[in-house]
Amino acid sequence: MLRPPRHRVDPRARRWWTLQALLTFSGPALLAAAALLVLSALLFAGALPWLAPLVLAVLVVPALGYLWTMPRWRYRVHAWEVGEQAVYAAAGWYWRTRRIAPLSRVQTVDTVRGPLQQLCGLATVTVTTASTAGDVKIAGLRAADAEALADRIGAAAQLVRGDAT
């Protein structure tokens, strides 16, 4: 059996994922719900009895549910570990993926900090291999940790020659 990776990501990642949820789905959904309800209250008051439950069920509940569940669930799943031979990362929430790529097959190590991540002081380390199905992404690391991790993986990958396919 595969054991989970040793290290959790930074706790602030939850805040980052919450912001992400707000920007991508929950925020727009809640805004749309509010707009619909206000408009119908002002213009078609008669529609409210059936529109309000509909909006609640289709927009408000999923939006709040996603906002509440996704970051916590992700934080429980996301983890990483660099072993002697390979780098190992777990990610996702509903679909959980655990990926292991050997250091000898690493092609590049990228550290990316998006605007939201900069706000939270986080970074994502992406380890690419020659196959797109073999790229390992470790999201939500503390910025300083990410730098160190990228250096460490890069140094380990340097030891192996060849074109790593």
Partner: peptide, 10 residues
């Protein structure tokens, strides 16, 4: 084979 991924859902 240069990497393995294991995917599951609840």
């Amino acid at each position: 084979v240069l990497a393995w991924t294991f995917t599951d859902t609840p």
